[in-house]
Design a protein around this nucleic acid. Sequence first.
DNA 1: TAAAACCTGTGAGCAACTCACAGGTCAAAG
DNA 2: CTTTGACCTGTGAGTTGCTCACAGGTTTTA
Lengths: 147, 147
Amino acid sequence: MKVKELAEAAGVNPDTVRFYTRENLLKPTRNPDNNYQQFDAEDLRRLRFARKARQLGFSLPEIRQILDQADDHHSPCPMVRDVFQHRLAEVEREIRELQQLRKRMTTALAAWQDMPDGTPDGHTICRLIEHWDDPAPCCGATEQNEE
Amino acid sequence: MKVKELAEAAGVNPDTVRFYTRENLLKPTRNPDNNYQQFDAEDLRRLRFARKARQLGFSLPEIRQILDQADDHHSPCPMVRDVFQHRLAEVEREIRELQQLRKRMTTALAAWQDMPDGTPDGHTICRLIEHWDDPAPCCGATEQNEE
DNA sequence: TAAAACCTGTGAGCAACTCACAGGTCAAAG
DNA sequence: CTTTGACCTGTGAGTTGCTCACAGGTTTTA
């Protein structure tokens, strides 16, 4: 299989195949005649695996690690379970944050129903946003640079 | 006010101030003696505004547009309301997607309780992920490159 | 045999910063 | 008066996961 064929088989952009190859997720052989990359069924499996893992939120370095472990005949599954747990926790955190954001937004939107637009007067830019309440800094951090 | 002072007043990284200046969100005057940037209370307002808008999900180009409109003495509020509506819809979409992802993840995690780890045998990389069900492509798209 | 369609590697672009670097400026301490 | 340290300046690179563009080589098709 050549790049485009593999890409089509996996339903991805050919440039993604090239990128994954650059990143050492795929290790095609070469056709000595023309130096073209040659992929086989195993590469297709790897690529499909990588795409599924991406959907699950694994990063490319994580996926590479899993793939490399599998190449060394170590079972990557324990690691997968581990990363997966972390990833799940992170997804849940993201959900909570977004829900908080939504709540603040709908509250603001309701409050804005009653506010006039107003033209900027040099002291105020857009009171819609200026009167937006900061998300209460819950963790005691007043500054957002972490140092 | 110099860079670091403004940054501290707004609770951001000095490099963020420099970056926003580069991006024309802030337009400091110059001290002719030493070419240092000079910020005033208006710049602080602009910076605080920009940060609030960022928390609301506005992009830097959007913020620049709002600021520029305010500079021209047009009220940016109608635009703000508009972008805000779009942004709220997007946040809700993100929430739905993440909730679906979480559901799939917890389901998978439960199913994995019963699966053995297994060492990769050349045919399978990590059945934990390979047996992950694709998120049903709901929009009729079988391929994910949009063209 | 020439044009179209593919291949190659490399470099840039996206978003919103953050950090690093080299050199200039300034306040206080020795 | 000079040195030290903290700040300033602009610029370029790094982050993530691709995607696109480019210039040149190869293969297929007409």
